[in-house]
């Protein structure tokens, strides 16, 4: 098997609040291999987001080792971490985090603006390609507030994959979505995963976790269980079973 994309050993994160310490991660060791689809589960406060932020190079661990695509990130400064986020990682948030008063296309283009190699035309082409991959090419010119929640999350996914990342990290991407839209989003993740992109997502919904290939259960800042999903669900097969609600904004 190939070298892991993500390899963490004894990851510890302690938040200091005055003289009070919160042990958010108490020694996490985990390897995630290329093309894997991992769902991280666990109760609220178990350290899932803290883990994702560190893996996403948004935060640094208190101690422990983290190799991203073979690169040791523990010695990197702010700027180098920013570069890694730009080049190797795609992030999807629960609350979409799109720029307001900005078109879908411009939102998707954003990571490309912070990596200088492409011309304006190439950026546009790349962004359209990504929007196409999430099925929103026809909404390129729409402003983010003109899109439904599901569409906004799909734009966010397009943004996360526009710079060809080695892994997409999604922290509760379906947390703000209804059942059907959640499955639609999972369909996109599964499609991307089939194309070879590694996906790590956090969810506390069992139903959603069953779309992944592997489940990792967090408990009090530690991994309590790792399991392969046996009866893995395929989103495109599930979708027809879910009734379309009348008042849904999706088209």
């Amino acid at each position: 098997m190939a070298d892991p994309i993500i390899s963490v050993k004894h990851l510890v994160k302690i938040y200091k609040m005055g003289d009070f310490e919160v042990h958010a991660l108490r020694g996490i060791s985990l390897e995630i291999n290329p093309r894997e689809f991992v769902a991280i589960m666990g109760a609220s406060g178990s350290g899932k987001s803290t883990f994702m932020n560190i893996v996403g190079c948004l935060d640094i661990p208190t101690s422990g080792e983290y190799l991203l695509d073979g690169i040791d990130i523990s010695k990197m400064d702010r700027d180098e971490l920013a570069r890694l986020r730009n080049k190797k990682l795609g992030f999807v948030f629960q609350s979409f985090n799109l720029l307001s008063r900005t078109t879908a296309l411009e939102n998707v283009e954003l990571p490309l603006l912070y990596s200088n190699s492409r011309s304006a035309a190439q950026r546009r082409e790349k962004a359209m390609e990504a929007l196409n991959a999430v099925g929103l090419a026809d909404r390129a010119g729409h402003y983010s507030n003109q899109l439904s929640g599901g569409q906004q999350q799909r734009v966010a996914i397009a943004r996360s994959l526009v710079n060809d990342p080695v892994v997409i990290l999604a922290d509760e991407p379906t947390g703000n979505l209804d059942t059907r839209t959640s499955v639609e989003v999972m369909e996109i993740f599964q499609k991307l995963n089939e194309r070879g992109i590694t996906v790590v997502l956090v969810t506390h919904e069992l139903d959603i976790a069953r779309f992944a290939g592997k489940n990792v259960l967090f408990k009090d800042g530690k991994i309590s269980r790792i399991a392969m999903v046996e009866d893995r669900k395929i989103a495109s097969e599930e979708l027809p079973k879910i009734p379309v609600l009348e008042d849904e904004m999706e088209s």
Binding site: G56, A82, N86
Partner: peptide, 16 residues
């Protein structure tokens, strides 16, 4: 603030 966070998450450096 949130916009700045988004920009940083997708790779903007402090200097950007």
């Amino acid at each position: 603030t949130r916009e700045i966070g988004i920009r940083m998450a997708v790779g903007a450096r402090g200097s950007d």
